[in-house]
Amino acid sequence: MYRNKYRLIIPFLIPSLLIYLTFVIYPYASAMYISLTRWRGLSQPPQFIGLANFQKMLQDEHFWNALGNNAVYLITLPTITLILALFFAFLLTQGVPLSKFYRISYFFPQLMSVVAIGVLWSFVYHPTIGILNSLLQAIGISNPPIWLGNPKTVLGAVSGVAIWQAVGFYMVLFIAAMEAVPMSLYEAAMIDGANRWQLFWKITIPMIWETLMTAMIFIMIFATNMFAITQTMTQGGPSRSSEVLSTFLYDEAFLGSKFGYGTAIAVTLFFIVLAISLTVQRLMRRDTLEY
């Protein structure tokens, strides 16, 4: 059956390999080199300067500021999103009324473009047209903050939007994992007198551990990005208080024409993502449960 197979293999592989090598592999590979150069774009070619970009980066307070903001998202997004998603997923697999409706509506924000969500929420947070502050005033908070205009509240406000969007996605993921847990385990535990809370901690959590780990890595990678939502809602402001690595490197490269430096930040971002994935996998590794 594999006679003349190369007559099929070659034409089937060449187009996608060509596109992929050109537009994905080549840029990634040359990023490694460009991060070691000074490059102001235009006609001058990149000039090799070793690790100077990385040295400059480590002394750049704007880099540390952006990294610090990513660190805030790395704490707020995973904890709140995953706890809410787990909680809702568990409840919705218990046969509560309207569970189908909840499942459909919670997931919807995931489908909207981050830009549309950013615009929607900048309306909600808006000090004059927004509904959030007038709601807060109605319940007695006389002087609510200007959420996106105050360095103290801006990260929390953006986190809230990211969580709002992401919860439904992780919930659906967890529901799929929970539904794969064999019923017999729950039945046996209930005969032994276990309550809902015990079922959740002793059966559900261990049985969906792999999915939980994947979800953790996913949302942490998401927290290292935050480009579209930041660009739309705050553009890094006020005065860089919500700038993250992705918007910082974009501005350095495309507005400041520091292409070598911008690429060095991007390469650093890659190592951060890699370190996060490896650390989460190591910390959360458990022997897979057999059933």
Binding site: I221, Y250, F259, T263, A266, L274
Partner: peptide, 20 residues
């Protein structure tokens, strides 16, 4: 080789990609 493409954040490719 195809799998490797999923490892990297798009940001890393962004600047070389723009010039390409």
């Amino acid at each position: 080789l195809f799998l490797a493409g999923m490892l990297f954040p798009v940001f890393m490719a962004l600047i070389p990609l723009f010039f390409l």
